[in-house]
């Protein structure tokens, strides 16, 4: 599938009157089932950009704007060719072993409630792959239309669009399976929108994607951009939430 992406972010620096230094994760990488035909990042003011990689192996773009600005509009545009691999990720740029992705983070802390939920979800599943599919389906069934219930389970005020993927990561890790958060785009009928999902590691298969928002593995509609332990590590703009993800329905306001 050929997916055309045009995504705009308006970034408002928190420090007024200072030069802007930001780290962007907005560039998809090539893998066996994802080919970037062309890609560019533009900003609407004088800026310098440098590309590099973060510790997780994601492509990053450092954005330097010397003159203080109120707001800067960052636009990522490009074409990506994808093929359906049943969620299996092959040929991705890996810098860290799967074992790292068993650790919790501030956004994905180990919790008894999540552990119990995950254990219940996989009660009848046999083998890691089945367990992960079971967990993914259970999260989708229970929370995709009930943000309030997700917030309760995670003991947070409000569950956001990233929390289903966080929940999947925490649940999979509680089962002893490495899992990580993925940010990217998903193609819709008319355009591609920002989206997030999760990946878990299954021995002898490798990293496999799970999208709890649809209760299935990602298909050729998903364009993978960055992966990390949680949303903060894969954020398109470092230190900022990805504001225009599709919100959870039934989200507590």
């Amino acid at each position: 599938m050929r997916i055309a992406i045009e995504h705009q972010i308006v970034h408002r620096p928190t420090l007024r009157g200072k030069a802007v230094v930001q780290m962007l994760r907005l560039t998809p990488d090539n893998s066996d089932d994802q080919t970037v035909v062309h890609w560019r990042i533009d900003v609407d003011c004088d800026a310098r950009m440098r590309s590099g990689r973060d510790g997780f192996g994601n492509a990053v773009t450092m954005l330097y704007i010397e003159e203080p600005v109120e707001a800067v509009t960052i636009t990522a545009t490009g074409d990506v060719l994808t093929s359906d691999a049943h969620g299996i990720v092959r040929g991705s740029n890996e810098t860290l072993p799967p074992a790292l992705y068993l650790r919790g983070t501030a956004a994905t802390p180990a919790s008894e409630a999540v552990t119990a939920f995950a254990a219940e979800a996989v009660r009848h599943c046999d083998g890691p792959l089945a367990m992960l599919h079971g967990l993914n389906a259970a999260i989708h069934r229970r929370f995709a239309n009930d943000g309030k219930a997700a917030a309760e389970l995670l003991s947070v005020e409000e569950a956001g669009p990233c929390d289903l993927a966080h929940l999947f990561c925490t649940g999979a890790r509680s089962l002893g399976l490495p899992a990580r958060f993925v940010s990217g785009f998903v193609a819709g009928e008319h355009d591609a929108r920002p989206h997030c999902w999760a990946e878990a590691y299954v021995a002898e298969i490798g990293w496999v994607g799970f999208d709890p928002a649809i209760g299935l593995s990602p298909t050729d509609t998903h364009v993978r951009v960055a992966a990390a332990l949680d949303a903060a590590g894969a954020a398109p703009v470092a230190g900022e939430a990805w504001g225009d993800l599709v919100p959870l329905t039934g989200e507590t306001q």
């Binding site: 990689r53 510790g55 997780f56 860290l96 332990l229 590590g233």
Partner: peptide, 8 residues
């Protein structure tokens, strides 16, 4: 162990 600087 800081994964943020792995590979650097």
């Amino acid at each position: 162990f800081r994964p943020e600087i792995a590979g650097m």
